[in-house]
Nucleic acid binder design. Structure first.
Lengths: 400, 400
DNA sequence: GTGAAAGCGCTAACAC
DNA sequence: GTGTTAGCGCTTTCAC
């Protein structure tokens, strides 16, 4: 309601109030004047108006719209029709204030605009969330925050009852949000590996992803592979490091780790300078992988002739750069759908355990190729690409 | 409130109710039992609890949290402190139901996941909206819908009072949403050229953008330039067509129009085949432009040696592809901020007129170069790029 | 199967 | 300045 109201608005409010008071004082059925005021006013119809039109009580209308069984089919039909005619929908706020379940999922992303914007994962996630949410009548409340504002926003949104559950993404090691949502009593689900029994997780089945990647690279003759992690603070980083080491050991591949340094003048050149013997890299972040393949030739490293690159995550961006990126595609939409399903259970007070969704698929494109012959150095000839536009092959990774 | 409640929950509710009833029956100040129940229960604190703790009435608390002046500074401080201690925030739903202003902006995007996901504009828009929204205590409710569900979602979100205003994007010619929001009485702002007095617009100052682009291309010797539009139904398409024609005429450049056909087997090849004499193109959509520069060489057209490409819209994607895209950068964040400011005025009942934000900047990168000599045909030598990594130059476009 | 009535937590008019 | 009170529109007992 506007703070500064017009004269008409004041008159209207006063009229409404009068009508209501008359109704109260007469203690009778329904004075026609109230009906008239309510139904012709620009204000939205109320449950009372619908009830009146259907010739029933407000509670009957409520029952129908909440799927409670105490109303006969015929009456229910009449009520629905009246609601339609008045174009009425239960007021979300009123419903909440009177104990009805809320229907809003909070997604608070602690990223700067640019790192948010250049991660296609978020577009897939947002798009993937909206459909299952819409199916159950929920909506998505989204915001970006700075790291030091994160807790405040969770507390505020929950405290104001603006949202009824949270989806936690970018989970960090010792992430304070887990304790926070438990303290608040807020239903929450996280995307990533399970951390805490209190907050169910939706995990992508990643166990064999590295084996698949290293198998692919091994076949191409690579014996030394490096893993490039983007953000060291994220919870998944260490787990992936370990899996990478193990899978490499099993396949007799020499594993190493290289950090991406976004503060360098030329992060790609700087990274390539630190690769050592590695002839292939697996990059945690798709846009970084894309930057590497795009920029490497400009600093003297041909992809895939001298270096093979695999992106962990896949999207249209991988098919945009040249050479196209070989990538590990995650079932983001499936994760989103699963998270929504869990959230719905939590909100209803049922308990929900963590879930695992299907594994990553290795999509082989053009950024991986035969390992360079050891003799050749950085001055290797820029061999013509075997087939620049060869179609993608897909290796389905077996689930576990 | 969960439908299926535990025994404990039932007991708790019953206890609360008892306490409340005792309070009502005694008709006295505040029975200690109620305070105890409310404050130690896991339920969130209420305004009454805060008032009690601060030794004032609920309305005093309300006044403080709504910036009304009727409370002394000392009392206000005491109230704030009590609220902090109880970790209380005004309940959003209650506030709305009792006439308080809402604080939620609806953004309904009628796009399929993939066309949404591959348009970096939306990431910039979302990121750009959240900050100004947070500044005024609003949040963003976002959803994707199919075209035939669009109207239903607007009606539903508004009818339920789930949102308090709408931001209209992807405005189409004769867009039914304009009449819809006016009929609903919903505050709304659109991004794009003004269409209707009822819905204020935030427009990017595009008047001279084509003159700037064509000036740049003219200097490079291009005499025939084509415009590639993505979605013919969008309202901005025709306006841009006209501006393009006019600017071309003024500069003695031969203008043509070519449609992008996403259904073709190879849309890029198909498009290039229809360019006629044009040696440069201006592409409405950044990801299409990126696809063109990435794929053109694979079908025998070198960029920029044989064809110059300019993208209308700019983001990190333009710097990812090779050659890097010369692009027209729009002030998306400024548009978002302006839209939020307008919306806030509308919601308060003040009127708000359309606004124009600063013009597009031409960012010259590597996808534009000298026009090919007319004699040379498709078999032109793949001349070495003059400077593959030359730094971007920026031409500020003068506003009007 | 139906309706009356008491709340939900807050705001705002008005009296003190 | 501060408190009282009557709503907001809905849900939910609990009588009928």
């Amino acid at each position: 309601m506007p703070r500064n109201v017009s004269a008409e608005e004041l008159v209207k409010r006063y009229t409404m109030r009068l009508a209501v008071n008359v109704y109260r004082f007469t203690l009778e059925g329904q004075p026609p004047s109230l009906g008239a005021v309510t139904e012709t006013s620009p204000k939205r119809a109320t449950i009372a108006a619908v009830a009146r039109r259907a010739g029933v009580s407000p509670s009957a209308v409520s029952h129908v719209f909440n799927g409670r069984p105490n109303v006969s089919a015929a009456t229910a039909e009449r009520i629905r029709q009246a609601a339609d005619e008045l174009n009425w929908r239960p007021n979300y706020a009123s419903r909440k204030v009177s104990g009805g379940g809320g229907r809003s999922l909070g997604l608070v992303i602690a990223r700067a605009s640019d790192t948010f914007g250049r991660d296609p994962f978020f577009m897939r996630l947002i798009a993937g969330l909206t459909e299952p949410l819409a199916d159950i009548g929920w909506s998505l409340s989204l915001t970006l925050v700075q790291a030091d504002e994160e807790e405040r926003v969770y507390r505020q949104w929950w405290g104001e009852q603006r949202v009824d559950a949270f989806l936690l993404v970018d989970v960090r090691t010792d992430d304070p949000r887990l304790a926070l949502v438990e303290q608040l009593g807020a239903p929450a689900v996280l995307l990533g590996a399970p951390i805490d029994d209190g907050v169910p997780a939706v995990t992508v089945q990643d166990d064999t992803a590295f084996a698949t990647v290293l198998g692919h690279l091994g076949e191409l003759g690579h014996v030394s592979v490096a893993r490039v992690a983007d953000a060291p603070g994220l919870a998944h980083t260490r787990a992936r490091d370990q899996r990478f080491s193990r899978a490499a050991a099993e396949q007799g591949i020499n594993a190493s780790f290289v950090a991406w340094d976004p503060t360098a003048d030329d992060p790609v050149a700087e990274l390539l300078g630190r690769l050592g013997a590695a002839t292939a890299i697996v990059v945690d972040n798709e846009s970084i992988a894309a930057e590497i393949v795009a920029h490497a030739p400009e600093v003297g490293v041909e992809v895939p002739e001298q270096l093979s690159v695999v992106a962990w995550e896949d999207s249209w961006v991988s098919t945009l750069v040249r050479p196209r990126l070989t990538a590990l595609d995650a079932p983001v939409e499936e994760s989103a759908r699963t998270a929504v399903a869990l959230l719905e259970r939590l909100v209803r007070g049922e308990d929900a355990g963590s879930r695992t969704v299907s594994g990553r698929r290795l999509v082989v494109r053009d950024s991986t190729g035969p390992a360079p012959a050891p003799a050749r150095s950085a001055s290797a000839p820029k061999a013509a690409r075997t087939s620049r536009t060869r179609s993608s092959q897909t290796h389905e990774e077996e689930g576990s």
